[in-house]
Design a protein around this nucleic acid. Structure first.
Lengths: 163, 163
DNA sequence: CACCTTTTTGAGAATGGATCTCAACAAGGC
DNA sequence: GCCTTGTTGAGATCCATTCTCAAAAAGGTG
């Protein structure tokens, strides 16, 4: 369910910018806040169509960017070749571990890294507006899986050598 | 000019994997090591064609990925909608500040962040193979520019109000 | 409520980076 | 030199995202 405080922020943002409040915008807002994880525009469109909400692809893309400008959503490339969106929980910065084996995305929080980033920006006279930190690699399960696979493969090769 | 040590690493990588040493691969290697900054596949193709080196788009894309697998190049989306490649200087991890005003990319080094990332991976049982950390925002020059522009705009609006 | 201006929407076309196809070609082993 | 097999090149294809523009709707005004 969408949080009332954030809905308020969205409405205020629209008013300040002279944008109009449309059914499509509200529906998209509800949809993205109903999702718990990371979702891409195409999935969002599909899931809205399934619920018989009428909205077009162009509108989804346009208004996702609006939510990002408003600070309510974050848009990032996480491993894949498309943008993933997530709604922003206020005051809780997090980053991502992306498993290249199963594609799963895990969030982590690191105040230490956040602080260091601040120092770096200050040192460079840089005014940050956004950041992306993602670490790609293998999660526990996929790393084990890979070891097992490698072991099996070498046994098979060994066996074939004696045929 | 390409570093002999790295050329050696590339040749060894090709041999180990059963890949062949072709003129195109060597030319691409030389090209990317001749570049100092970040470059995308399309630019790389253009600059090679300009020098009358014959190579096709598909080959550039294919072999850039090979250089990445080999650990000699890094492939990242830095702000833009395309991949940028940079050759890897051994033993020197760096990350990026990307100015959304002028598009300039500045590198920075932070051993502190690197260490914290290591801790996080250990805590999650995650085996990292790659990472991306980029901070987007405005560089000093663009931030000032924006202030000046805003000041001028408000003066003009003020003047128009009295017409 | 009717009217008017301006923004927004939607369907489909267009864009553009990256990948795929497959016949011609070349590397490396014998 | 020959043969097998990986590689290349030109163009087709893919696919996420953006663009186009006429029709629809929002919001202000009387």
């Amino acid at each position: 369910m969408s949080d009332a405080r954030e809905r308020q922020k969205f409405l205020q943002f629209l008013r300040e910018r002279g944008h109009r409040v449309t059914a499509e915008r509200l529906a998209l807002f509800d949809e993205i806040f109903a999702q718990h994880g990371h979702i891409d525009a195409e999935e969002l469109l599909r899931s809205m169509k399934e619920r018989a909400l009428k909205i077009s692809r162009a509108t989804v893309y346009r208004n996702l960017d609006l939510l990002v400008e408003c600070g309510l959503a974050r848009k990032q490339r996480l491993g894949r070749d498309r943008y993933l969106y997530e709604h922003v929980h206020p005051g809780q910065r997090h980053d991502h571990l992306v498993c290249t084996g199963c594609g799963r995305v895990v969030e982590f929080v690191s105040p230490g890294i956040a602080a260091l980033q601040g120092e770096i920006c200050r040192a460079h006279g840089f005014s940050p507006t956004q950041h992306t930190l993602q670490i790609s690699g293998l999660c526990n399960a996929c790393a084990e899986m890979r070891e097992v696979t490698a072991a099996v493969r070498s046994r098979v090769e060994e066996a074939l050598r004696h045929v």
